[in-house]
């Protein structure tokens, strides 16, 4: 292959970033894949490739369970977040005067910038036995005993939804305002009600944007360790929690790697699912 001087120079610019990504991302990823086929004999690693980890994964109930728990939580969070964020983005885009929209949007996503670790913790203040919600409920005499809200799946989902509503409001808003107002005007002129305009015109036009946001939510949610760990308690574990458990207690890197590969697999499947949705929508 004969490279021109121009191309050599181009390579020179790309090379540092490429080498960094290869050395610190691609190679570790391949090693992790190999590690998932190794096994642990006592404390020593055995590099004889086998699918023992994956077989163990399918046989141990708590490992299989964690995959379903993760999927259930992630799907609930994705759907609830979209349903809550869409009206909010709609109101900011179409009901608030343009002059105030940027401020309203900025305010709606400001808590996004609370520290990631502290964000889940701050929900504990609201949901714990002595927390604000129980304080209000008992103050109103609605309940005599504190309601258990923290250390439940409800708490995990609430913490996640709080974060992703902000993210999705941002992406859906961006989608809504770039639509030409002529679509809405035309639908209205032709006699469509507000709901019909939304259902038949705006929703289909913003569906690709919603799906992109929903996919982002899915990916970030299923890979998250902190929120379920702080808010979910120990009754049920998600996949990231099980991975961290393998690393901490037993230093079982092979099993952790196998779980990580499974997690990747789920994300890839989700991508294919979402991609098909988007394409179907375009036809």
């Amino acid at each position: 292959m004969n490279l021109t001087r121009e191309q050599v120079r181009g390579w020179g610019f790309v090379a540092p970033a490429l080498v960094w990504t290869l050395a610190f991302f691609v190679v570790p990823f391949v090693v992790m894949g190999a590690m998932s086929l190794a096994s642990l004999d006592g404390r020593t690693l055995v590099w004889t490739p086998s699918f023992a980890n994956y077989i163990e994964l399918s046989e141990k109930a708590y490992l299989v369970r964690s995959i379903f728990v993760s999927l259930e939580i992630t799907l609930t969070v994705t759907i609830v977040s979209v349903l809550l964020a869409y009206p909010l983005a709609w109101i900011i885009a179409f009901r608030i005067p343009p002059k105030w929209q940027r401020l309203a949007l900025l305010l709606a996503v400001l808590p996004f910038w609370t520290s990631y670790v502290v964000r889940s913790y701050s929900w504990l203040l609201v949901l714990s036995r002595e927390g604000i919600v129980n304080d209000v409920l008992m103050g109103l005499g609605l309940t005599g005993e504190p309601v258990t809200l923290a250390s439940t799946r409800f708490a995990t989902v609430t913490g996640f939804v709080h974060f992703f509503v902000m993210l999705l409001t941002l992406t859906i808003y961006a989608n809504l305002v770039q639509l030409s107002p002529n679509y809405r005007r035309a639908a209205m002129d032709l006699g469509a009600s507000t709901f019909q305009t939304f259902w038949h015109v705006i929703l289909p036009l913003t569906l690709p944007g919603i799906m992109t946001g929903a996919f982002l939510t899915f990916v970030l949610c299923i890979g998250d360790y902190m929120t379920p760990h702080i808010l979910g308690g120990n009754n049920e574990l998600t996949v990231p929690q099980v991975i961290m458990l393998q690393l901490g207690r037993r230093a079982d890197f092979p099993l952790a790697s196998a779980l990580a590969i499974i997690l990747m697999g789920i994300v890839t499947l989700a991508y294919l699912g979402f991609a098909r949705w988007l394409k179907l929508d375009r036809i």
Partner: peptide, 11 residues
């Protein structure tokens, strides 16, 4: 496209 957890684990 990969979870931070997986990037960290690989490294």
């Amino acid at each position: 496209t990969v979870s931070y957890l997986i990037v960290g684990l690989g490294l």
